[in-house]
Simulated scan of single mutants.
Amino acid sequence: MKVVLAYSGGLDTSAILVYLKKKGFDVIAFCANIGQDEDFDSVKKRALELGASKVIIEDLREEFAKNYIFPMLRANPEYEGYLLGTSIARPIIAKRQVEIAISEKADAVAHGATGKGNDQIRFELTYMKFAPHLKIIAPWREWEFKSRKDLFDFLRKEGFVISYEEKLYSVDENLMHTSFEGGIIEDISKPYPDTIFKKTLPPEKAIDSGEEVEIEFEKGDPVSVNGERMTCAQIIQKLNEIGGRNGIGIRDVVETRANGMKSRGIYETPGVECILFARKSLEGICLDGNVRKIASFLSPIYSELVYKGLWFSPEREALQTFFDKISERINGKIRLRLYKGNFKILFRESPNSLYKKEAVSFETYGDMVKWSEGFIRTLGLRFLLSE
Rank of each mutant, 00 (worst) to 15 (best):
M1N: 13
A6Y: 01
Y7G: 04
S8C: 10
S8G: 15
G10Y: 09
S14R: 08
K21T: 13
K23N: 11
V27G: 03
I28P: 00
A29E: 06
F30M: 04
G35C: 12
Q36V: 10
D37P: 00
D37M: 04
E38W: 02
E38A: 14
V43L: 08
K45E: 15
V55L: 11
V55I: 13
V55M: 08
I57W: 06
L60Q: 02
L60R: 11
E63H: 04
K66T: 11
K66D: 08
Y68D: 00
M72L: 12
M72P: 00
Y79S: 03
G81P: 11
G81D: 08
G85V: 11
T86N: 14
R90S: 01
P91I: 06
A94K: 03
R96K: 15
Q97I: 13
V98Q: 02
I100K: 01
A101S: 14
V109Q: 07
V109D: 08
T114C: 05
T114Q: 02
G115R: 08
G115N: 11
G117Y: 01
R122D: 00
F123Q: 03
F123V: 04
L125A: 01
P132N: 10
I136A: 11
P139Y: 05
E142H: 08
E144S: 13
S147P: 10
D150T: 05
D153S: 13
F154M: 08
G159E: 07
V161E: 14
E165Q: 10
K167E: 14
I188V: 13
K190L: 15
P191S: 09
F197A: 08
K198N: 08
K198M: 12
K199R: 15
L201Q: 04
E204Y: 14
I207W: 10
D208Q: 12
S209E: 15
E211H: 10
E211C: 07
E211F: 03
V213S: 05
E216K: 14
E218M: 08
E218V: 12
K219I: 01
K219R: 15
P222G: 03
V223H: 07
N226L: 05
C232G: 00
C232S: 15
A233G: 02
Q234P: 00
I235N: 02
I236E: 06
Q237W: 09
K238R: 15
K238G: 01
E241D: 12
I242A: 05
R245C: 03
R251V: 06
V253L: 03
V253Q: 09
V254W: 09
S263R: 12
R264H: 06
R264V: 12
R264E: 09
G265V: 14
E268Y: 05
E268L: 05
T269S: 13
C274R: 00
F277A: 01
G284M: 06
I285H: 12
D288L: 09
N290D: 12
I294T: 09
F297C: 02
S299Q: 09
L305Q: 09
L305P: 01
V306G: 03
V306P: 00
Y307R: 10
R316F: 06
E317I: 13
L319D: 07
D324E: 14
K325V: 04
R329P: 00
I330A: 00
I330E: 00
G332F: 07
I334R: 06
N342Y: 08
L346Q: 11
L346H: 07
L346T: 10
P351F: 11
V360E: 15
E363A: 11
G366Q: 08
W371S: 13
I376R: 09
R377D: 13
T378N: 14
L381N: 07
S386W: 03
E387S: 14
